[in-house]
Design a protein around this nucleic acid. Sequence first.
DNA 1: GTGTTTTTGTGTTAAAAAACATCTTTTGCC
DNA 2: GGCAAAAGATGTTTTTTAACACAAAAACAC
Lengths: 239, 239
Amino acid sequence: MYLCAEKLIIMTKKEDVFGKLPEMSRVLTMEEREQVLDVMEVRAYRKNEPIYSEGDVPSHLLCLLSGKVKIYKDGVGGRAQIVRVINAVEYFGYRAAFAEENYVTAAAAFESSVIASIPIDLVRQLITRNPQLAWFFMHRLAVALGRSDARTVNLTQKHIRGRLAESILFLKESYGTDEDGKTLTVYPSREDMANLSNMTTSNAIRTLSVFVQEGLITLDGRKIKILDEPALQKISRMG
Amino acid sequence: MYLCAEKLIIMTKKEDVFGKLPEMSRVLTMEEREQVLDVMEVRAYRKNEPIYSEGDVPSHLLCLLSGKVKIYKDGVGGRAQIVRVINAVEYFGYRAAFAEENYVTAAAAFESSVIASIPIDLVRQLITRNPQLAWFFMHRLAVALGRSDARTVNLTQKHIRGRLAESILFLKESYGTDEDGKTLTVYPSREDMANLSNMTTSNAIRTLSVFVQEGLITLDGRKIKILDEPALQKISRMG
DNA sequence: GTGTTTTTGTGTTAAAAAACATCTTTTGCC
DNA sequence: GGCAAAAGATGTTTTTTAACACAAAAACAC
């Protein structure tokens, strides 16, 4: 049920949109749903289009209805680090609002994406009235924090090969594969791979080539096919 | 109102303990407080004593009543990375429980500490009944996630001097200073400094010496005094 | 006190990764 | 198609940092 940007008009038939918000629709009363529908907006983003930027004031809970999104942070010398990726259907963009901060990260579309946005004030009201919704977001935040801590250590302590192997497996986990179980369904640029793996673009290109030579993966443009997952896992573990 | 381990007996006079749990006492009814008091336990930990370990099943919400605690993760080749530090009076140890995971980090006392523990099942009940308590923990998780993401980028992209400068400033932020406003109130070993800053102990020692030579800090054993904070900030920013 | 272990300090070498320089290929655009 | 710009590829050099080796000092045990 992939939904391309051209079908955006269909998404604005709001009942359809709601069917894609599992936690919301499961938990809310009909009256509450109506409230959400009244103010929700749906918008398409082109590939690489920015969604929000570091320093922006968070005003909406976002939900990725279709497509893929990267959450990243610009660091020293303009080098970006991808800290999280979002897959459909997932909520995002709420951390800053719940922390009562401005965004400390930026978000952009990995590929054409459709995103629903719900004013954060309404979400706050719903959470206060509805413990189940509170638990849902607490759970998500807690899981994300554990992943972020793990990521810190992986990115700092592993060597280049380990970090790149980890990123390939991370993309498989996050976005899955074709029917063959081996070809990633996300097509990151070499620069994206570098920004995932904390290395320069040159080193991402070089190390990917080495992995191809070693028979661990094949490359077809930006398409990555995993040939020897156990070996990648070993490289990732060893660092 | 510092409380050393010898005064533990006083802490078990439960009303006193409760006075130290601001969010709990502000938010709970008298009946709920009684519930917490009935099952809460208080325990002292010696310097460097482990509090919980990676892989442990989380069973309690912990609250640091006095002392200092480090949260860390063991990485490649046994090298530890300190991901967070806890100051009195702060809650910790709840992330894994809320994520329904085992601990992915370990905790140990930086110095002699006194810690209260409340069964996590009770906390879950209280949160479900009490939206304010839910908000409190959501807020803490959201803030911690933002910090963790920032830390990832700082530790990966900055060079040794930048990382060490950042750690010194981080310790000042986290634990404060003496009355002079310059001498840190925490006394980390060189190895702790290395584990905070993602470098080897040798490099932590060496780089601290360089900072002394440059007149940025003075060292007296493990006591760190900041002489030129603006310069440290600049080094931290530049990477 | 004395011996032992841990922590701290310093110099040297080796490995890893970034920076740089070029070149090729692909992509987008008129 | 043809041009410009972006992305990908690869080799070389330089910088950064870890690893190693060893010495001195401090903390601890007896």
